[in-house]
Structures are given as structure tokens and as C-alpha cells.
């Protein structure tokens, strides 16, 4: 039997069940990635998720269409067990603004490499005589998932790692191992490194190196904003007040009164044009974390003056 070209590991029923598990993983991952796009600030990460949602939807769709050919209901997803649902719940959990890397790691360092490993294992075992429809899906999906991993890892590398992220990766891998992987039987390892050398990710990566260029700020305004930021750090009340338009003084100083203490550095992080006015964002940072102030500046003769200010963001230390 085992030497026959018709020997095979998968029964029709088993094949259908495993495909429902694959579909569960692809569908849930796709929905999660779609939901995360709005929560993700960094443009390359936001756009790589946007690129891959449609591929994952097509993968889920391909699996779902295969099911009725295996005497199963079309487009049905089924997790292998409750532990896999818990793994996906855990993977979906990071939704704070500063958890982009955790989000990407869950998908691109844990789940997708695991899926590649599981799909490759399935392809090795699927019978070439009577399972070509499944094999064709695997042959399409594997390189796409591999490409996703390669692209996602490049974005992660650009955003930077931290001990927090390493710990998160371990937690996810443990949860996936506890579930026995996407098939629930532990046949594919939970944490795998797949070879992505030579994978072309040019179509997946957008704005990878784009960043705010402070030279876009007019030199005289830049000098004023930077001096104003230093005055804020040093608590130089007279210097601060001198930069603020008289009729905006109460509101602006009121906003500044809410700034946390302890900043020791200032940096311009954004500047938008609004007619002749400029809306400038400045980050004040120090050991307790950082805050971002949004100030509207207007020319008053030769000088620039702040006419409005608000604290628009806070970041904790990595």
C-alpha cells in the first residue's frame, strides 16, 4: 500500500477538516489585520497590512471553495480546538498605538511562518494523483505567505525590537504550541524560521523609508520653534510667554500647564501648512516618556508667534 502511487495520508474527511482549520486561521487573521489597520500609526506597517488583507481573504476563499469538493459545506471555518481560539484571541489583543510591533510579530513571526510550515508539510504528503486540487491551492498560497513573511519582517526590523516584543513572541509561540498548531495535532512546530532569502517584496512595501524631514520647516520658524521647545523644557516662563500672541496667552499657557515635567529633549516631528499659518508638532521627551504638542504659528511682523497649542499625544518609554 505505501509504495503505491495511490497511497495517501489524507482521507476525504480528514482533508476537509484540516482545510476548515486552515480557513479558520486565514479568515480570522485577515479580519484581525483589517481591523488593525486603523489602529496602526506607522505608514509602512499600515500599508503592509492593507496589502495582505486581500491575499489572506483569497486564501480563505480558496480553502472555502475547495470544501464542497470534499463533501463538506462551502466557506466554513472551524478552529482545531479551543486552545487555538485562545491563541488567536491572544494574537488579536495588542491594539494600543505603541503595540504595532507586537501586532506585526504575531502575524509575521508566529502565525504566518507556522502556516507556511503546515502548508509545506501538507503539500509533501498530499497525494499527487487524487489531490491536485488541494495541491494547487497550496502551491499558490505557500509562496504568497512566504512573501508576506519576508515583507512583514522587513517592516518589523525597521520599527525596532525590544525585550517586550521578545517576551510577546514567546507567549504567542507557547499558546500556539499548546493548541497543537493550526491542525491541532502538533505536527508543525509553533515557532519556525522560514527562508525568505531572495523573496521579492517590492510590491508589498510602501513608504518604508519615509519620515518627516525637518528641513521642510522654514528656517526662521524652525529656529523659533526649537527655542520655544527649549524654553518649555527649562521652564523659562518669560521666554515662553514672549513667543505667544498676547490674545492667545491664557489658552496656550493653560495647555502648557498640563505638560508633564521631566522632559530633557525637544524635536520637531511634523509641520503642516494652513494658508500662511503653520501647524507644528513638537515632541518633548525624557525618562518618564514623551508628549507631543501641536502648535499653530502665525507671523507677527518679522516674528513667528504661537496662536494656539494643544497636547495631542503621549508615548511611554519603549
Amino acid at each position: 500500500m505505501t509504495s503505491s502511487p495511490l497511497a495517501g495520508e489524507f482521507s476525504v474527511e480528514l482533508s476537509g477538516r484540516v482545510i476548515r482549520h486552515y480557513r479558520y486561521a486565514e479568515e480570522r487573521m485577515m479580519r484581525t489585520m483589517g481591523g488593525w489597520i486603523a489602529l496602526t500609526a506607522e505608514l509602512p506597517a499600515k500599508l503592509v497590512l492593507g496589502r495582505h488583507v486581500w491575499d489572506c481573504a483569497q486564501h480563505a476563499d480558496l480553502w472555502g471553495r475547495r470544501l464542497p469538493e470534499l463533501r463538506a459545506a462551502a466557506q466554513k471555518s472551524e478552529p482545531p480546538n479551543e486552545a487555538f481560539v485562545r491563541f488567536m484571541d491572544l494574537l488579536e489583543r495588542p491594539e494600543d498605538r505603541d503595540q504595532t510591533v507586537e501586532r506585526l510579530v504575531g502575524v509575521y513571526r508566529v502565525l504566518k511562518p507556522h502556516l507556511v510550515a503546515a502548508y509545506e508539510r501538507h503539500l509533501e504528503r498530499a497525494n499527487p494523483v487524487y489531490e491536485p486540487p488541494t495541491r494547487r491551492i497550496l502551491e499558490r498560497v505557500i509562496p504568497e505567505e512566504r512573501r508576506h513573511v519576508a515583507a512583514g519582517l522587513q517592516v518589523i526590523a525597521r520599527l525596532g525590537e525590544s525585550p517586550r516584543v521578545a517576551e510577546w513572541t514567546r507567549r504567542l509561540a507557547d499558546a500556539l504550541a499548546e493548541a497543537g498548531g493550526v491542525t491541532g495535532d502538533g505536527t508543525s512546530p509553533a515557532l519556525v524560521t522560514i527562508d525568505v532569502d531572495g523573496v521579492n517584496t517590492a510590491g508589498d512595501l510602501v513608504a518604508l523609508d519615509s519620515a518627516f524631514d525637518v528641513t521642510k520647516v522654514e528656517p526662521d520658524l524652525r529656529g523659533r520653534v526649537e527655542a520655544h521647545g527649549r524654553a518649555l523644557i527649562e521652564g523659562d516662563a518669560a521666554g515662553i510667554a514672549a513667543d505667544v500672541a498676547p490674545d492667545a496667552r491664557d489658552a496656550v499657557l493653560g495647555a502648557y500647564a498640563r505638560l508633564p515635567r521631566g522632559a530633557n529633549a525637544t524635536e520637531i516631528v511634523g509641520c503642516a501648512r494652513l494658508g500662511a499659518q503653520r501647524v507644528v508638532k513638537t515632541r518633548l521627551s525624557g525618562p518618564p516618556g514623551s508628549v507631543v504638542i501641536q502648535q499653530r504659528w502665525q507671523r507677527d511682523g518679522a516674528a513667528w508667534r504661537v496662536v494656539a497649542a494643544d497636547v495631542v499625544g503621549a508615548e511611554r518609554p519603549a
Partner: peptide
């Protein structure tokens, strides 16, 4: 207000 943007974007 959970819509996330890089700091270089000014929201008004």
C-alpha cells in the same frame, strides 16, 4: 479617536 497616525500628520 482611536484612528492612529504618525506624528508627522497634523490632525484638525
Amino acid at each position: 479617536d482611536k484612528l492612529a497616525r504618525e506624528n508627522r500628520f497634523v490632525r484638525m
